[in-house]
Design a protein around this nucleic acid. Structure first.
Length: 566
RNA sequence: CGGGGCGUGGCGCAGCUUGGUAGCGCGCCUGCUUUGGGAGCAGGAGGUCCCCGGUUCAAAUCCGGGCGCCCCGACCA
């Protein structure tokens, strides 16, 4: 019997001073997690129960699509990471064994799993295969934050698909995606699937599963027409600029002494910020090629989109490089007459009467029309903004969300360097086509706290609550109360519910407060008052609605109520 | 990596400016009373004041160095 009097659930009246995020505060206060170091968290019994419930759901859904559970080590020889070129990643923990051999702590398991498949899969007959595990990941995060949301060590469900060709990958990817939808639905989260950047994973396509919440680290662009994308990759049509200056037959210089920023120039010339052309000196790729990137003055550059458009790494030019490579004083850089290549953002198409830097101190040009005045390359590399229009014409809004899962089409990013190949029907050697699919149970847990908490504490979705119901017995030493509580406990257990029994010698207020903090979906209160009427009181945690229940047949009634909860 | 903040009993904090007995609330232990919304009374336990060094008769307090943690940004499957 799980009695609170001997269960390790150290609750706190006040949140730790350094906790900011709601999930951070509540998980600590409710006695579910404790911090061991920056980004290093221990799950106490109640918190671990939630984690395990989430794992169970993941396991069922992975098994249901034919994925096979296994386990690979966290500590790995560096060799495999050198082969895939990921040994240089800053977030990768590196160490040496006693012989001085370079080792790493895995941040994900593509190298390990792909190596095994490379060794043991030889024939098209062995494919496709989908493997998964729950395993610790280690990442030397530059900044762990928000309690359990961004940590240096965490458990991930990571799955990997191995197919013989792109069609196979597409099918595996679709199966995983559908499983993910069922998983987040079952966990009771509010969630959506968005297009995402492939990032350091490499590969040809990716989606993220996002749970909207205040503590979210990602910004997601959404529209009522169903558009959903991480702002890192989101594309939209810009809202037009009102009151553009008159177009001119040709660009004309204008004195703008000391006006180096968009705001200064806009104020000095009395034109909207969007009438300016923002010229951003960038340096592209290994070869350090200078490139002048042009944006509407009120827009901002999205380095990820730019990198993806160029297919190369980019960075902003340093102050001294601007003079040397872009031939202009800082603050007056512009496209016309620029020695560097020019790449204009699509939002500038068709605009005339624009203001741009003149590549001369204290001077700008009026009446610039990019398509008329120079031949630039064009691409979409601006960050979308609230009020833009999605492809279906609906207005874009942006909200914070936490990434709870992601799926990647890896292609041959790992199979090629690790030699994961097979022989096809014709005896020809082919490279395996891969996908990878990750979910962080801790993030599901934290997102659920964030999404459903109220002033009193956590309100767990039914499927992942540490316990289904908490019985609160009132009245110290009242044997009848204790007996009724005990009986109810056993009856509910027999019906398959997880029950927590608060049998402590604490005041009613304290017990109620702790129960609401922990957030089990139901609370059954048994006290003298109710007993005399032959009743107990049932509280639904979400909404705190209370009702009286006849003691006779209470367990069955409670089960039915529980089944009807979200 | 840049900016800011914090480190004093389990939690939240005061004390530091102006050096001299380490304090408050909550929690914890014991006893009695109390039991439908964080109870009352009485008694009690618990602190290398983050660490190292310096100044001083004397350092939580002043000085130097280090470490840890949090927040913002950069970064980030």
């Amino acid at each position: 019997m799980t009695r609170l009097s001997d269960y390790f659930l150290p609750t706190l009246k006040d949140p730790p001073a350094d906790a900011e995020a709601i999930s951070h505060q509540l998980l600590v206060r409710a006695g579910m997690v404790r911090q061991l170091g920056a980004g290093l968290w221990t799950y106490l019994p109640a918190g671990w129960r939630v984690h395990r419930k989430i794992e169970a759901i993941l396991r069922e859904e992975m098994d249901a699509i034919g994925a096979q559970e296994m386990l690979a080590p966290v500590l790995q020889p560096a060799e495999h990471w050198e082969k895939t070129g990921r040994y240089a990643i800053d977030e990768l923990f590196k160490l040496e064994d006693r012989r001085g051999a370079p080792m790493v702590l895995a941040m994900t398991h593509e190298e390990a799993l792909t190596s095994h498949v490379a060794r043991d899969v030889r024939s098209y007959r062995d494919l496709p295969v989908m493997l998964y595990q729950f395993q610790v990941k280690e990442r030397d995060e530059p900044r762990p934050r928000a309690g359990v949301l961004r940590t240096r060590e965490f458990i991930m469900k990571d799955a990997y698909s191995f197919d013989r060709d792109q069609d196979g990958l597409e099918a595996s990817y679709a199966r995983q995606s559908e499983a993910y939808e069922r998983i987040f639905e079952r966990c009771g989260l509010e969630w959506y699937r968005v297009e995402s950047d492939v990032g350091m994973m490499g590969g040809s396509g990716a989606h993220e599963f996002m749970a909207p919440c205040a503590a979210g680290e990602n910004d997601v662009a959404l529209s009522d027409a169903g558009y959903a994308a991480n702002v890192e990759v989101a594309c939209a049509t810009a809202s037009p600029i009102e009151e553009l200056p008159e177009p001119l037959a040709a660009p004309e210089p204008v004195a703008t002494p000391g006006a180096r920023s968009i705001d200064e120039v806009s104020a000095l010339l009395d034109v909207p910020r969007g009438a300016l052309i923002k010229s951003m000196p960038m340096i592209v790729g290994e070869e350090e090629r200078p490139l002048l990137c042009l944006l509407r003055g009120d827009h901002s550059l999205n380095e990820i989109k730019l990198r993806n458009a160029l297919g190369a790494a980019v960075r902003q030019a340093r102050q001294e490089e601007i003079g040397e490579r872009f031939g202009s004083p800082v603050g007056f850089v512009g496209p016309i007459g620029s020695p560097a290549g020019v790449l204009a953002d699509e939002a500038l198409r068709g605009m005339s009467g624009m203001v741009a830097g003149a590549n001369r101190a204290d001077t700008h040009l009026l009446g610039v029309d990019l398509e008329r005045d120079l031949s630039a390359d064009w691409a979409d590399f601006r960050t979308v903004e609230v009020g833009d229009c999605c492809p279906a014409g609906a207005e874009i809004r942006i909200e914070p969300a936490i990434e709870v899962g992601n799926i990647f089409k890896l292609g041959t990013r790992y199979s090629k360097p690790l030699g994961a190949t097979f022989l096809d029907e014709d005896g020809a050697e082919q490279t395996i086509v891969m996908g990878s699919y990750g979910i962080g149970p801790a993030r599901i847990l934290a997102a659920a706290v964030e999404q459903f908490a109220d002033d009193a504490g956590i309100c767990w979705p039914r499927a992942i609550a540490p316990f289904d119901i908490e019985i609160v017995a009132l009245g110290k030493g009242d044997e009848e109360v204790a007996k009724v509580a005990n009986d109810l406990y056993e009856d509910l257990r027999a019906l398959g519910l997880d029950v927590l029994y608060d049998d402590r010698e604490a005041s009613p207020g304290q017990k109620f407060a702790d129960a609401e903090l922990l957030g089990c979906p139901l609370r059954a209160t048994i006290g003298r008052r109710g007993l005399e009427a032959g009743e107990l009181e049932l509280q639904v945690r979400r909404g705190l609605e209370q009702s009286a229940l006849a003691l006779d047949g209470a367990a069955q009634e409670i089960l039915e109520r529980w089944q009807s909860l979200a």
